[in-house]
Design a protein around this nucleic acid. Structure first.
Length: 866
RNA sequence: GGGCGCGUGGUGGAAUGGUAGACACGUUGGAUUCAAAAUCCAAUGCUCUUAGAGCGUGAGAGUUCGAGUCUCUCCGCGCCCACCA
């Protein structure tokens, strides 16, 4: 009997050994196949949470497995270090953001290290350091030269609590994604990146990402939102001209101010149009209706309608009749009334539509309210335009030259006609907008441009004057942008003329940093370039970037789309050759925990609930995502301290498939801890009787030894496949099965002992990616001098994988009645005899004839009787 | 409103169209112990009286020799998007 496994000491010992031997440092090696594993880097909030533990454990299994398989693995780590919490800490506690951030990274680095992760720490990056952000300033200048970055005045989403601009992606239900405050609209000069130039490429690229979850690809596809349609020009008529007059001789089409451009994806329904409408903030709205009575009220009403889903759901369709009309392009006698309507969005299409009530529900509602004609132009059995709009397939009717065509052909025909007449053209429209990257914050990368005071010219800061560093003496007591408030920092001179100039006081959106960090890891200490081409071409060549990227699904359209865009932009600028940054993507589920509430609805900590003598004054709530306010957070440091890294890792891998939510339970982590101890005990108890490490393989084995060997070798392939499939819970199950087989094995004699040692060694190698400390310890206890971490993955002996006999089911008319044990390759006759020999089969057959006999070797026998 | 996904024991979850419930958690009984913890052994889908039989993957239909798995309809849940013309 060996002494009890001292988890803490032992784990620390092996971590030190890996460090001393630089086990996980990656080097470019053209002779080895590379494998780049990356997990989304953390924001240095100060402490790791269980979600991090899950994320990095998954990555560690992949990294250690691939390493053992002989790949040249790159597995780096860093800090997504710019962001608002640092500024909030500065405001709340008076700590400087830099100091707060850096001390947080120090703490979290130690926490991560205590998990025993196979990380190349020599490549660590921290995005708030000038060594990192100077490169993105240079990159920005190159983006400018290549027309990828530009500046324009625009209406932006303004978060009144954080006092900053938000990207569309950061507005959720009309509220700021962090503060939850209703977003306001504000006009500002902002920097943008032309992500829309790459819209089509980003969309097409999704096709090739077959190792991405379908869900994420769909979300990106919907976000890009490509739709084909027609842009069509209508001529606008003055109220006097249209009012029942025969005056249609006047040609306004030559007057661009009096034409209205609309966008539609259903040009086929043009003959069903009964009105036109523009957005409240359309430039023509003020011009056509500004003087009219009630207009100001109407605009106010439009703005008052919230953008939350509930508001939209219930919002009535509201219109304001301008009195103007537009000429129907194909029906000379028809002039459509022109409305300003609250359901038209200025920032999609042209901010103007023509309404076809019979075939669009919104137009239908609008037409009902304002008593406009509902003219059906698509015929189908299911269409009932008395009741609601019909949007399905059908044939064109009431549509002159389009009659009889199906929708697709009608679209093509009408677009052709419009193009020939010069009144419209077929176009592609995207939902995706350019990415606004200006933020009125201190703790971000300064945008490296200055504005000359004399003429306001925007001058890029020359490369040799970079980086533009953040000032350290900063005052957070005043509201607004601290950089703007700084007494001296923004005052500088024009690098071209030497005249006084003002620095850009906005900083980059922090998604900027995380859009290219995957490249920086390839060459983290390069002083002149973001990444050396030789390095990026080795780790992220044209044909492939990161082999396996792992993170939360919440980044499906933000970070993951930006990073794909950046990869293309960087390629355009000649930095890299790679088309896609992440070839494989795995999105993990959340970690949840039970909640506890007392009868007043007050949340309780688990220990508070446990301490209650009378449990009826509180109730156990559902297991939901851990959050401070719900008091159901588990601190990984406590877990690592109590149970050790291996137990924590094992539990997090074992209970649920990684893509699903995982419920954190006390009993679960305890079960994992017990298993760690059990495995240690099993091996320690057997060790004295095992043959030495390099004892030659015996030629014959007992039956039970052969069976054990067969199980062990099958498990090699089983676990390998499970890890490659990201089915870590199944890998754990298989590992436990093998350990159960081993612990019930009673060796008798030398060859049995040899087989036992072989199975131990296989098991140890297989658990290594999941529980590396324990594996390393057991490996050394078995008498090995080298590090297990440097051992290759075991290879299954093919001859042990074959099944000689198999137990298969016997069905009668498809119902299971018995099982038989026959040779794997037994012929049909043998199977029939064995099946018919079963009492239960005979009884069920009840003397009836066999009409059909089905035998699938190794699978099933089915007797069809009757 | 649109899109995607999911419904399997008391619980987490396994099942290339072929023995449903692997592996665990929990529970029950037993061994060990002065006692407890830990450990070990056994049982554990449901129903019926044990040997045994019947029924079972949200509901209903279909395809098939055979369906948790494929198809359709319905019910329930979750996520994402959303006045996107």
């Amino acid at each position: 009997m060996t002494e009890r496994y001292n988890i803490k000491e032992c784990e620390a010992k092996w971590r030190a050994k890996w460090d001393d031997n630089n086990c996980f440092e990656a080097h470019e090696d053209a002779d080895k196949e590379k494998y780049y594993v990356l997990e989304m880097f953390p924001y240095p909030s100060g402490r790791i949470h269980v979600g991090h533990v899950r994320n990095y454990t998954l990555g560690d299994v992949v990294a250690r497995y691939r390493r053992a398989k002989g790949y040249n693995v790159l597995r780096p780590m860093g800090w997504d270090a710019f962001g608002l919490p640092a500024e909030n800490a500065a405001i709340d506690r008076g700590v400087h953001p830099a100091k707060w951030t850096i001390s947080n990274t120090a703490e979290m680095r130690e926490q991560l290290k205590s998990m025993g992760l196979a990380i190349d720490w020599s490549r660590e990056i921290t995005t708030c350091m000038p060594e990192y952000y100077r490169h993105e300033q240079k990159m920005f200048l190159r983006f400018l030269k290549n027309g990828i970055a530009y500046r324009k005045e625009s209406i932006v989403n303004w978060d009144p609590v954080d006092n900053t601009v938000l990207a569309n992606e950061q507005v959720v239900d009309g509220k700021g994604w962090r503060t939850g405050a209703p977003v306001e609209r504000k006009k500002l000069n902002q920097w943008f990146l032309k992500i829309t130039d790459y819209a089509d490429d980003l969309l097409e690229g999704l096709e090739a990402l077959d190792r991405w979850p379908e869900k994420v690809r769909t979300m990106q596809k919907n976000w890009i939102g490509k739709s084909q349609g027609l842009k069509l020009n209508f001529t606008i008529f003055h109220p006097e001209q249209s009012e029942g007059s025969q005056n249609k001789g006047e040609d306004f089409s030559a007057n661009p101010e009096m034409t209205l451009e609309v966008f539609t994806t259903r040009p086929d329904t043009i003959f069903g149009a009964s009105f036109a409408a523009i957005a409240a903030d359309h430039p023509l709205a003020e011009k056509l209706a500004g003087e009219k009575e009630g207009f100001a009220d109407f605009i106010r009403q439009c703005q008052a309608t919230g953008t939350s889903e509930a508001a939209i759901e219930q919002a009535e369709k509201l219109g304001f009749d301008t009195g103007y009309t537009v000429q129907h392009p194909f029906l000379e006698d028809v002039k459509l009334p022109l409305y300003i309507a609250n359901f038209i969005l200025m920032d999609y299409g042209t901010g103007a539509i023509y309404g076809v009530p019979a075939h669009d529900q919104r137009d239908y509602d609008f037409a009902q309210k304002y008593d406009l004609p509902i003219k059906q132009v698509i015929d189908h059995d299911e269409a009932n335009t008395e009741q609601e709009a019909y949007t399905g397939a059908g044939k064109l009717i009431n549509s002159d030259f389009l009659n009889g065509l199906d929708i697709e052909n009608a679209k093509a025909e009408i677009i052709k006609q419009c193009e020939e007449l010069g009144i419209g053209e077929g176009t592609t429209q995207y939902r995706l907008r350019d990415w606004g990257i200006s933020r009125q914050r201190y703790w971000g990368c300064p945008i490296p441009v200055v504005y000359r005071e004399s003429d306001g010219a925007c001058i890029p800061v020359p490369e040799d004057q970079l980086p533009v560093e953040l000032p350290e003496d900063i005052d957070f007591s005043k509201p607004g942008n601290p950089l703007d408030n700084h007494p001296t920092w923004k005052h500088t001179t024009c690098p071209q003329t030497g005249q006084p100039a003002i620095r850009e006081t906005d900083t980059f959106d922090t998604f900027f940093e995380s859009s290219w960090y995957q490249f920086r890891y390839c060459d983290p200490h390069n002083e002149t370039e973001p990444v050396g081409k030789d390095k990026s071409d080795y780790w992220m060549p044209q044909s492939g970037g990161v082999e396996q990227y792992i993170g939360g699904v919440e980044h499906a359209v933000l970070h993951l789309l930006y990073a794909r865009f950046f990869t293309r932009a960087m390629k355009t600028c000649g930095y890299v050759s790679c088309d896609e940054p992440f070839l494989g993507l795995f999105t993990q589920g959340m970690v949840t925990h039970e909640t506890y509430q007392d009868t007043d609805g007050k949340w309780l900590f688990p220990y508070e609930y446990e301490a209650l003598n009378d449990k009826s004054v509180a109730k156990v709530g559902p297991s939901i995502k851990m959050s401070k306010s719900k008091k159901n957070v588990v601190d990984p440091e406590d877990i690592l301290d109590t149970y050790g890294a291996d137990a924590a890792r094992l539990f997090i891998l074992s209970d649920s498939p990684p893509e699903r939510d995982l419920e954190w339970t006390e009993s679960g982590i305890e079960g994992a801890w017990k298993f760690v101890n059990k495995l240690h005990r099993i091996i320690s108890d057997s060790i004295d009787n095992l043959p030495g490490a390099n004892t030659p393989k015996p030629s014959d084995f007992s039956e039970k030894a052969s069976e054990l060997r067969s199980v062990s070798h099958k498990t090699i392939n089983g676990i390998s496949k499970s890890i490659e499939d990201f089915a870590m819970n199944k890998a754990v199950a298989q590992m436990r099965e093998l350990s159960n087989a081993i612990s019930s094995f009673r060796p008798e004699g030398e060859t049995d002992q040899w087989a036992l040692r072989e199975s131990f060694e296989i098991l140890i190698k297989l658990i290594n990616p999941m529980m590396p400390h324990l594996a390393e310890e057991l490996w050394s206890q078995l008498g090995h001098e080298n590090l297990l971490t440097n051992e290759p993955w075991p290879i299954a002996d093919e001859s042990l994988l074959k099944e000689e006999t198999v137990t298969i089911g016997v069905q009668v008319n498809g119902k299971m009645r018995a099982t038989i044990n026959i040779a794997m390759d037994a012929n049909e006759e043998t199977a029939r005899e064995a099946a018919l020999a079963q009492d239960n089969v005979q009884r069920t057959m009840d003397g009836k004839q066999i009409r059909k006999f089905i035998y699938v070797p190794g699978k099933i026998v089915n007797l069809v009787i009757g």
